[in-house]
């Protein structure tokens, strides 16, 4: 009886709100076609896959690919590189848009504020290929602005993009330049949602702008910061693949090769689909665990969570 009424309730609800569910449909279809159906192919990580036999007919090999993976120095290096680059991204790249948003919030002159915002949003809309081109040109040993400026101080040209020790700073810096401005929009929106009378009350209480930023603005946007942090932690294993492909070269693999580029080279360039699938699956599982952990911790300690 109980079950029946529940089903009836769902049907009644679907009928009454069908327009809303109809609007949801394209997204659900998109998820199924592009994200769930391809998961069928994940099984090749556990198979000796051959494109001639197809996914279903290839023989099972158990964890063989994973064993190879973890004894592969290049893969281990790629995992560490991913973690290091992501950690740098998190430490320097995550606070950047928050700081930008707080700074924009303090600008009182409207035209100046709009101009500054447009300038920092712009790189987001430029294709990564062009961004990489700009970076490569800027750091070029012969014509690059960076080496030109260093030359003024009598410093010899540095071949930045061929030196492994320079790859991470350049990559992380480029990422900040490209995305920090656009990322600040979320935080600006959060700041705009803070009740203005909190500031008025603080003004009467004697707070200055600095105190208001620390005691009102930042605590008020903390839930947004946490949500963004959870998303960010979930994406730790997803280093911006395009930009790495565009900026790295064999000379910098030592610091630049990440799991995604490793998967790309193994799978698409060398045709080892099963092996690459195993690497990719490993990556995804780690990412999944990270999101779960971050979300649970956040829910427990700050009552803010994605779900």
């Amino acid at each position: 009886m109980e079950k029946e009424t529940r089903l009836q309730r769902i049907i009644f609800h679907l009928r009454r709100e069908w327009q809303i569910y109809a609007m949801l449909l394209p997204t659900i279809i998109w998820f199924i076609v592009f994200l769930y159906k391809p998961m069928y192919g994940l099984q090749i990580a556990f198979k000796d896959y051959s494109i001639f036999r197809g996914v279903a007919a290839s023989p099972w090999v158990g964890l063989e690919h994973f064993e190879h993976l973890f004894s592969n120095d290049q893969f281990i290096r790629a995992v560490w590189n991913t973690i290091k680059i992501s950690a740098l991204n998190l430490v320097f790249g995550f606070p950047a848009p928050i700081i930008l948003a707080l700074m924009f919030n303090e600008i009182l002159h409207a035209t100046y504020k709009k101009t500054a915002q447009t300038i920092v949003y712009l790189p987001h809309f430029i294709s990564s290929v062009i961004i990489a081109g700009i970076v490569i040109t800027a750091f070029s040993p012969s014509v690059g602005i960076v080496n030109t400026v260093l030359g003024w101080f009598g410093i010899d040209s540095i071949y930045f993009l061929t030196k492994p020790e320079w790859f991470r700073p350049i990559f992380v810096g480029t990422g900040i330049w490209q995305e920090a401005g656009f990322g600040s929009i979320v935080f600006l929106a959060a700041i705009a949602g803070v009740n203005p009378s909190l500031y008025e009350s603080a003004v009467v209480d004697g707070a200055n702008r600095w105190q208001m930023m620390w005691r009102i603005t930042i605590p008020s946007i903390l839930p947004t910061i946490l949500i963004m942090l959870i998303i960010r932690i979930g994406n730790i294993m997803e280093v911006s693949f395009e930009l790495i492909i565009l900026l790295y070269q064999p000379a910098t693999y030592e610091t630049a090769d990440v799991v995604n580029t490793f998967v790309y080279r193994q799978g698409l360039q060398s045709g080892r689909y099963d092996f690459a699938a195993a690497a990719g699956l490993f990556n995804a599982v780690v990412a999944f665990v990270l999101v779960m952990v971050a979300n649970t911790l956040s829910r427990r300690y700050s009552r803010t969570s994605l779900w």
């Binding site: 009740n195 009378s197 909190l198 008025e200 009350s201 603080a202 003004v203 009467v204 209480d205 004697g206 707070a207 005691r215 009102i216 605590p219 008020s220 903390l222």
Partner: peptide
């Protein structure tokens, strides 16, 4: 400046800081 006028104001929507508890809210000024 408002802070130097030695006035205190009570607002219509209370203007309490949501991230602070009652004691901290009262102590803010």
């Amino acid at each position: 400046a408002p802070k130097d006028r030695d006035v205190a104001m009570v607002f219509q929507n209370y203007a309490l800081y949501p991230h602070l508890n009652v004691a901290e809210n009262i102590a803010f000024g």
